[in-house]
Amino acid sequence: MKEKIKVTVNGELRSEEVTPNQTLLNFLREDLDLTGAKNGCNEGECGACTVFLEGKVVNACLVLAIEADGKEVETIEGLASGTELHELQQAFIDYAALQCGYCTPGMIMSAKALLNRNPNPTREEVKEAIAGNLCRCTGYEKIIEAIIAVAEKNS
């Protein structure tokens, strides 16, 4: 039992078929081969699957693909322009804000959402904004520094 959906992913309109029980995360990874968003906990705790849905960050593991019908989705793959990285991606490299990289796509999407709504966040606001993104290796210090560096550069 497949249902047709039309969804704009990283600016490209796609017509696809999904089963109702498919999550947005599963759809992105398995059907569209967009494997940036990761499957961590599958219950909205870890934030590794964070993507934008209609301009708002959500846990893609807790959204049904069918709910994205007629909507816009942006994933980490949509951030770079060709070979030029998004400034948050570059800052994460410059500040060594990643080791294994598993949390990085979700971390960057949460950071982008923060800077969209608040271009000059305090350190506390950065911590609050990434509270739903778990990192188990780098630690949060370098991640916070990278996000603040991008905010300061743009202010």
Binding site: S110, L114, A129, A131
Partner: peptide, 8 residues
């Protein structure tokens, strides 16, 4: 929860 959870 978290910011992204509260969007839903």
């Amino acid at each position: 929860g978290s910011y992204q959870l509260r969007n839903r």
